[in-house]
Structure formats: C-alpha cells, structure tokens
C-alpha cells in the first residue's frame, strides 16, 4: 500500500463506520417522509386509482394550525429560554440556596410530558388545586386549561423545557463563566454589564442550541396540546393524529399533508438555528 493511498482508505473506513448509524435514520425517516408525501399528493391512495392532487393540502385548515403551533412553540420556548438561562446562572453562581433550586428544577427532567400535562391540568383547571388554594370560585377563574390562549399548554412546555435548557446552559457555562465575569468585574463592569457583555454572549451558543431543540420538540409534540388544549383550532400534531385515526379513510392523505408540513417546519427551524449557531460559534 502506498503512503498516498492511506488517507483515502482512512476516509472510506470512517464512512463505513458511520454507515450503521446513518442507514437506519435515512431509511426510516426518508421512507416515512416519502410515503407520507406521496400519500398526501394522492399518489398512493388506500382505495382507488393513484392521481396527483393537492386536495389533501387544501381540505384541512392547515394555515390556522401552522400559526397556532408556531405560536405555542415560540411562546413556550421563549419563556423556557428566559427561565432556563436564569436557572443556569443561579446554578453556576454556586450559592447553596441556588444549588437547591437547581436540584429541584432538574428533578422535572425525568418527569414524562404526559404526567406533567396531567399535573398541570390538576393545578390550573377551574376546579384545580390552585383556584382552591386561592379560594377563587371556578366561574371567576380564567380559562387556563382549554382556554383561548393555551396558557396551560405553554406553561407545561415552558416548565419542562426550562429545566432542559438550564441543564445544557449550566454545563456550558460552569467551567469558564466565573473567571470571565471576575475579569470583567475587575475591568469595571457592574452586574448588568457583566451579564450583557460577558455571560449572555458566552451562554448564547448553548442557549440557542437548546432553545432550537425545545422549539422543534414543542412544535411536533402531541400529548400536552391534546390534553390541555381546546378542541378547535388544533395544533398540527393534534390535527395529524385526529385525521390519521379517523374512521374516514379519505382523511389519511390530509393527515399525511399535516405530518409533512410539521416535519418541514421542524427542518426549517433546525436549519435556521444551525446557521445562526455556526455564526455564534465562529465568534467564539
């Protein structure tokens, strides 16, 4: 074997080693998305002749669902990002009380969303624990569960995801933020200036990445919106599941159209965040 041949062999070997991981992902996701796309375009109907049509895309209120899903995901992610960042800062500050806070918040990570949603329902419903505790009659309690503003849904996602974001950001900050903020303090930066000019930029890549994961997860997540949301309008995943499990077989292409839309939105969100993360990482 010649010396010049070695790098090529190394690269080929690396490709071979990656294949076991790549192949299942490409096959499963690719096949699923392709068949969903074909189904939504009327090319693989369960009954009847295949015929290219956009009927499935027009039949549902896709636009409303997209707006609703994006709004829920954006709102919950925004709250989770802010709360998660401050939790992470509290953890890295190292005071005993904030460590306790951090431990308590990280306890939410292993709780399944379904359990979280049920708990949020029991807490925030008009006959729930919170109105009882506060002595407010169900009629006077705002419609947090199943109401117009999807408060309980957003709250559940924000609560769960903030712990996840805090964990990621604290991990990224813990090893280095203290020495940088000390340096900044000695250069005359007060508390706010340190946060604005040092801590926030240092946390930004981890914060951005975890916020993107949280956004995409919330966008595609079904159970919380199904349990705590109102019947109509429906977010994308709820709409997709209802159409897919409908006894009307003609609804299947519509379900596929919703699924493809959700995946496309998630993909766009990931690509946009990857792009901005790369820029952030290049600055560091």
């Amino acid at each position: 074997m010649t010396a010049a041949g070695r790098p090529g062999v190394g690269a080929r070997r690396a490709t071979l080693l990656v294949l076991p991981a790549v192949v299942p992902v490409v096959v499963v996701v690719g096949a699923a998305l392709t068949s969903a796309a074909l189904l939504s375009l009327g090319l693989t109907p369960l009954v009847g002749r295949p015929e290219l049509s956009l009927d499935a895309w027009r039949a549902t209120e896709l636009g409303t669902s997209i707006r609703l899903s994006l709004a829920i995901a954006a709102g919950a992610t925004a709250v989770a990002t802010v709360v998660g960042l401050f939790l992470a800062l509290a953890v890295t500050a190292g005071a005993r009380r904030s460590r306790l806070l951090a431990t308590l918040s990280s306890l939410t990570i292993p709780v399944p969303h379904l359990v979280g949603a049920a708990a949020m329902g029991l807490l925030l419903a008009d006959a729930g624990f919170l109105p009882r505790l506060l002595g407010i009659a169900p009629a006077d309690w705002p419609a947090l569960v199943g109401g117009r503003w999807w408060i309980a849904v957003g709250a559940e996602y924000a609560w769960k995801e903030s712990a996840f974001i805090a964990l990621v950001v604290a991990g990224a900050l813990s090893s280095r933020v203290a020495s940088y903020t000390e340096t900044a303090a000695l250069l005359g930066a007060g508390r706010w200036a340190r946060f604005r000019h040092v801590t926030l930029p240092l946390a930004a890549p981890a914060l951005g990445a975890s916020a993107a994961v949280s956004f995409v997860y919330t966008l595609g997540s079904y159970e919380v919106a199904a349990l705590l949301g109102r019947p109509s309008p429906e977010p994308l995943p709820v709409l997709a599941v209802r159409l897919f499990t409908s006894i009307d077989l003609a609804a299947r292409p519509q379900a596929a159209a919703v699924a493809v839309t959700t995946s496309a939105l998630g993909l766009v969100a990931v690509l946009v965040s990857l792009r901005s993360l790369r820029r952030l990482a290049a600055e560091q």
């Binding site: 930029p201 600055e283 560091q284």
Partner: peptide, 10 residues
C-alpha cells in the same frame, strides 16, 4: 491572570 482570559466572543 495566568491565563489571558480574553473574551472569546470579542
């Protein structure tokens, strides 16, 4: 300090 600790984002 012993390490320069230049702010990496600047």
């Amino acid at each position: 300090f012993q390490r320069p600790l230049l702010f990496p984002h600047l």
